[in-house]
Simulated scan of single mutants.
Amino acid sequence: MTAVLFKDLSLSESLNQAIIDMGFEEASDIQGQTIPPLLAGRDLIGQAQTGTGKTCAFAIPIVERIDPLSKNVQALVLCPTRELAVQVAEEFRKLLKHKRFISVVAIYGGDPIQKQLRALQKRPQIIVGTPGRVIDHLGRKTLRLNAVKSVVLDEADEMLNMGFVEDIEKILAFTPKERQTIFFSATLPKAILDLKDRYQNDPVHIQVARQKRTTALIDASYYEIHRRKKMEMLVYLLEQHQFQLGLIFCNTKMQVEELVERLQVKGYSAEGLHGGMPQRKRDQVMQRFRKGTVHFLIATDVAARGIDVSNIEAVFNYDLPLDQEFYIHRVGRTGRAGKSGMAITFVEKSQLPRLRNFLRCPEISLRRENLPLLAQQA
């Protein structure tokens, strides 16, 4: 398939600049195929095992179609988990970097309701939320969807697996019938096909196959562990295996900074890498890691894009990644250049449904390991 450049997609100058700032020039397969019909207002089902790139695949056309002069909610993205909602909202913020008078708010359970009420009072045009919290705000009349132009169900199959089908239908009832309806899903079970028949109008179906990647040299395992025990378990494994060069992934820059500090206190040569750091500092950290003067690099997914160090012995998923593609990208940093490597993932009990979804991917195989005594007590 011929490569599609973002500059050839007839996007506004401000949006193109934001995409350049994010480090992208060439659209991924899912982006190249979905952005044109979505810009044209078509309904769409995007089916792909991969998660990387799918957010921008729907976010770019949504941002482009927002009317900045209207303070109504014009786009709603529903996500199965708060983690994914936060991630999607952050992608929107990056795309809105050079757009004036357009804003996005994430609403999800577990976050103080008063904080969300204040954010909604500023009248954002884009809402990213979990079904339960969206319904909560609809019931309070603090959220109105009567002017929505686009609705996205992200990871639709996972939302249905989690029992959100009634909530989704309740939310859709608050939106105009004449709207753009977009599904992104790794699989298309009958329940999604039923939703398609009921709520979509002649949707475009885009299916993108994942590229084959070799993970045969990687010994991958996971531990089901309580959040409070993860640090203790990490240190135990570092001591047990005596790794000389390792990469530790976290989902947020705050977690990166906290983990760096805690490892340094324990005497480890560790530094962090996240998107909130100036580029010059990120380059300096990477140079020290490549030279081996820093033994453990703690990073977020965005910051770690492009890391290519052949002698990384182990990758730790301190935080379970948000989707399958992030997992494959992370563990692929080890076992390179014909060498073997280890990939160790920490999974909290509440994250087991996401892990099961990962294991549906034929490229992902994880062996469950028993916790040592030190980590068995919560």
Rank of each mutant, 00 (worst) to 15 (best):
A3L: 13
F6K: 08
L11Y: 10
E13V: 01
N16D: 09
N16Q: 15
M22H: 00
G23D: 09
E25G: 13
S28D: 04
T34H: 02
P36A: 08
P36Q: 10
P37F: 11
L39Y: 02
R42A: 13
I45L: 15
I45D: 03
G46Q: 07
G46C: 07
Q47N: 12
A48F: 05
Q49F: 01
G51V: 04
G53N: 08
G53H: 13
K54I: 12
K54P: 02
K54V: 06
I60K: 08
P61I: 06
E64D: 05
E64A: 07
I66C: 08
L69A: 14
S70R: 13
L76E: 02
V77R: 06
L78A: 01
P80I: 15
A85F: 03
V88R: 12
E91K: 00
F92M: 07
K97C: 12
R100T: 11
I102S: 05
S103V: 02
V104A: 00
V105C: 01
G109S: 13
Q114H: 12
K115F: 06
K115M: 14
K115Y: 01
Q125F: 10
I126A: 03
G132T: 01
H137T: 00
T142A: 14
L145R: 12
V148G: 13
S150N: 09
V151N: 07
L153W: 04
A156Q: 04
D157W: 09
G163N: 05
A173I: 11
T175D: 09
P176R: 11
R179F: 05
T181G: 04
I192T: 07
Q200W: 03
V204W: 02
I206S: 01
A209C: 05
Q211K: 15
K212R: 14
T214M: 11
A216L: 03
I218Q: 01
S221L: 06
Y223N: 03
Y223W: 07
M231L: 13
L234T: 01
Y236Q: 04
Y236K: 06
L237N: 11
Q244G: 15
L245G: 10
C250S: 14
T252M: 05
Q255N: 12
V256K: 00
L259A: 10
R262W: 02
Y268G: 12
Y268K: 08
L273A: 01
H274W: 03
R288C: 00
K291S: 14
T293M: 00
H295M: 12
F296E: 09
T300M: 11
R305Q: 04
S310D: 15
I312L: 11
V315L: 02
Q324M: 07
H329C: 11
H329V: 00
V331C: 06
G332P: 10
R333S: 02
G335Y: 10
G338S: 04
G341I: 10
K349C: 00
K349W: 11
K349E: 07
P353N: 12
R356G: 07
L359M: 15
P362C: 05
E363H: 12
Q376N: 07
Q376G: 05
Q377Y: 05
A378W: 07
